[in-house]
Design a protein around this nucleic acid. Structure first.
Length: 566
RNA sequence: UGGGGGAUGGUCUAGGGGUAAGACGACGGGUUCUGGCCCCGUUAACCAAGGUUCGAAUCCUUGUCCCCCAGCCA
């Protein structure tokens, strides 16, 4: 089993190749994955993780895990732990290279003092609203703050006292002295430090002031001797400030920032704000709800790290806005699990079948391979008896054209077992619904094949009723009804296009071997799809999540036939 | 009406003066004890208009459309 094809190149790898050739950093390549611990990682982060750790792996470089924890009012240790778990699960390791921006608070503070001494930063005592007013607009230049020309001494005094906790929140900020008329609004004397009397999850009450992202990130990169700092497109405007801080401080050699397009996936939302809304408003069952695009949700659903990594390789890295088809992810999952997942029998929407000429009370066992194309995966015994469950979809009283499953008078194969012929149907007298099918079997077809060469077109999966294990089966579907959940009429939002049928819980029956599988167990229910045992499973009462169905050309054909009739 | 980016089949991504390539999807066929997998085939693209050139997706010019930026968020 090979791990995908060779990683395709992209503009970032070209830049690295060129730096290596020029010897910009010698032969060193150092990246970092810098999440803010204020939420759970999602598949968009996986793209960044694969990019950064993948580059480190391929260039024999390093990739640091760095928590960008400069805003204690939003961050917590809970998120730090969840993020570490998710990165590990993705299959990447940072070894000893785990850092926190908060590790650098003292150094950052010293750099700020250096800027003040250089006359490149000042304490501004304007309020938030005034700062906004003074900033100007996109088309008009800003005005200089009246505090812009405080002396170095006064700035030093004030900043030191900010640090000492002498002022309440909002009283002052430290700003870079750049250019209030800059075309790039970010360069109009950006805030470097704000006062926040909030305990930090790591530094506690040690700091009443906290550095801003733009000041922290570039310097953290420099401190860690990062060579290539990769982030998403919305930070392109911030690059000028990134460069300004490092160059003003005269740091060399220094990291450079490169931006790539973030991932968008059809039928999903990938912004922290919106994911939080789904969780907090109870529209899903938590961060790890199997419908969530969070890594914890995907993991619980049953998506494998291998599939997600392959997916990230396949979608590539570029700079144009994109909307990747969710089908691509499912393809990667099926590709992975097709090789590795044991084939087992599970009936999700049961219909009882009675084999009328099979001895009452009789039973026998068959030895089924776990994977017909991979003998090494072994086998297990599966019981057979007079009463079975088959899939409702596998019987039609009035079969459409080209339907070759069971219908009155029709002979089909019960997988690995016998040929059976439908002789009778039992209906609910009240509803007319078929509740039982009566069949006869041909004892000479034991094992599921016939010596006389007689062919049957349909093969059905089944579970012996008396031996069946009842399982809760959670059938998941897309969380939203439209490709782009953001594309809604005025006055509506993404929550108005949530798919009411994104979760259907059904009582199913599975073969006895599945009675006590471990949570996280992946398998293929033959002919149905890939399933994963949920942590809610208990011994004897498994819970299975449907990850995705098998490719179903019959369903598609039938759908298009109906479309033609309509 | 400021600045920063971006535009290649339905989708994602290559190609950076010389036959527009791959993957997903869709469609058709072969095979099959999973209507799965696998195999084969079909479909379908360079934002527009000018220009340079023997030759332009690529270089130049002018447009068009889309995204990002006015947090003491990241």
């Amino acid at each position: 089993m090979e791990e995908a094809e060779a990683v395709r190149s992209n503009f970032i790898r070209e830049i690295i190749d060129s730096d290596l050739e020029k010897g910009t950093y010698g032969d060193k390549v150092a990246t970092r994955f810098p999440p803010e611990p204020n939420g759970y990682l999602h598949i968009g982060h996986a793209k960044s993780i694969c990019l950064n750790f993948g580059i480190a792996r391929d260039y024999s470089g390093t990739c640091n895990l760095r928590f960008d924890d400069t805003n204690p009012s939003k961050e917590s240790i809970e998120y730090v732990e969840a993020i570490k778990k998710d990165v590990q699960w993705m299959g990447f390791s940072w070894g000893e290279r785990q850092f926190f921006a908060s590790d650098y608070f003292e150094q950052l503070y010293q750099y700020a003092i250096q800027l003040i001494k250089m006359g490149k930063a000042y304490v501004c005592s304007l309020g938030p609203d005034e700062i906004r007013e003074y900033r100007g607009t996109l088309t008009e230049p800003g005005k200089e703050s009246p505090f812009r020309n405080r002396s170095v001494e006064e700035n030093l005094d004030l900043f030191t006292r900010m640090r000492a906790g002498e002022f309440p929140d909002g009283e002052h900020v430290l700003r870079a002295k750049i250019d209030m008329a800059a075309a790039n609004v970010i360069m109009r004397d950006p805030t470097l430090y704000r006062i926040k009397h909030v305990a930090h999850h790591r530094t506690g009450d040690a700091w009443p002031i906290y550095p801003m992202y733009d000041f922290t990130h570039c310097l953290s990169d420099a401190i860690e001797e990062i060579t290539h700092s990769l982030c998403t497109l919305e930070f392109e405007n911030n690059r000028e400030l990134y460069d300004w801080v490092l160059d003003t401080l005269g740091l060399s050699p220094r990291p450079y920032q490169y931006e790539f397009a973030r991932l968008n996936l059809t039928y999903t939302v990938l912004s922290k704000r919106r994911l939080i809304q789904l969780v907090e408003e109870g529209l899903v069952n938590g961060w790890d709800d199997p419908r969530m695009p969070t890594l914890s949700g995907l993991r619980r659903r049953g998506y494998t790290p291998e599939a997600i990594r392959t997916f990230c390789d396949k979608i590539g890295i570029a700079k144009s806005d994109n909307m990747v088809d969710y089908a691509m992810l499912d393809f990667c999952l099926r590709e992975d699990l097709n090789d590795r997942a044991p084939r087992v029998m599970g009936v999700v929407k049961p219909l009882k079948m009675v084999i009328t000429n099979y001895p009452e009370g009789g039973e026998e066992e068959f030895e089924f391979p776990y994977h017909p194309e991979d003998e090494a995966m072994g086998s297990r015994k599966v019981p057979f008896s007079r009463e079975l469950y088959i899939e409702q979809d596998d019987f039609r009283e009035d079969p459409p054209r080209k339907y070759f499953r069971l219908s009155p008078g029709r002979e089909v194969r019960l997988r690995y077992a016998y040929y059976v012929t439908c002789e009778d149907v039992i209906k609910d007298p009240a509803t007319g619904e078929v509740i039982e099918v009566h069949c006869t079997y041909d004892p000479k077809t034991k094992g599921g094949w016939s010596e006389d060469g007689r062919k049957v077109k349909g093969t059905l999966h089944w579970v012996s009723a008396k031996h069946a294990v009842q399982a809760e089966v959670r059938l998941y579907d897309k969380l939203f009804t439209q490709e782009n959940p953001m594309d809604v009429p005025e006055g509506q939002d993404f929550k108005d296009v949530i798919n009411a049928e994104s979760l259907e819980v059904v009582p199913g029956y599975v073969e006895p071997s599945l009675a006590s599988v471990e949570p996280g167990y992946h398998c293929q229910f033959e002919r149905l799809g890939y399933y994963c045992a949920d942590p809610d499973s208990t011994p004897g009462k498994p819970v299975f999540n449907r990850i995705t169905t098998l490719r179903d050309t019959w369903a598609r054909k039938e759908r298009s036939q109906q479309g033609k009739k309509a």
